[in-house]
């Protein structure tokens, strides 16, 4: 069972995402509420995949993505985004994010993207 680390400052967003992922048979290895915490948890847990929100306090999603990919080049990170963050998404993909899922979530599409990202 693939282990997923969720990084998002919104508990609501984490709860909605967690329910979808668990229903689809994934295991949640941990939940972080900012990019710095996400990086720390990634280092400890080495999950199979990270879902990374973009707008977060302390360290945003792009910063955390860069930090994780710099230390762990094989890390698989899927960005989570609200609409209207096109330029940041492009930056994230250039920094090594595999794909992105947008809010509000489309359950089937989300699971399809996660499965594809896990290869």
């Amino acid at each position: 069972m693939a282990k997923i680390l969720m990084v998002d400052d919104s508990r609501t967003s984490r709860k909605i995402l967690k329910d979808i992922l668990i229903d689809a048979g994934f295991e949640i290895s941990g939940e972080a509420s900012n990019g710095e915490e996400g990086y720390q948890m990634y280092s400890e847990q080495k999950p199979d995949l990270v879902t990374m929100d973009i707008t977060m306090p302390i360290l945003d999603g792009i910063g955390a993505l860069k930090k994780i990919r710099s230390d762990y080049p094989d890390a698989r990170v899927v960005m989570v985004t609200a609409a209207g963050q096109k330029s940041k998404l492009i930056e994230a993909i250039q920094c090594g994010a595999i794909d992105f899922i947008s809010k509000p979530f489309d359950n089937e599409k989300l699971v399809e993207i996660i499965n594809k990202a896990l290869g």
Binding site: T12, S13, T81, A82, A83, G84, K103
Partner: peptide
């Protein structure tokens, strides 16, 4: 989170 999704749509339209 509701505000964030709403604002995301607005930011996209303005972009």
């Amino acid at each position: 989170e509701f505000l964030n999704m709403n604002n995301g749509l607005f930011a996209r339209d303005e972009y």
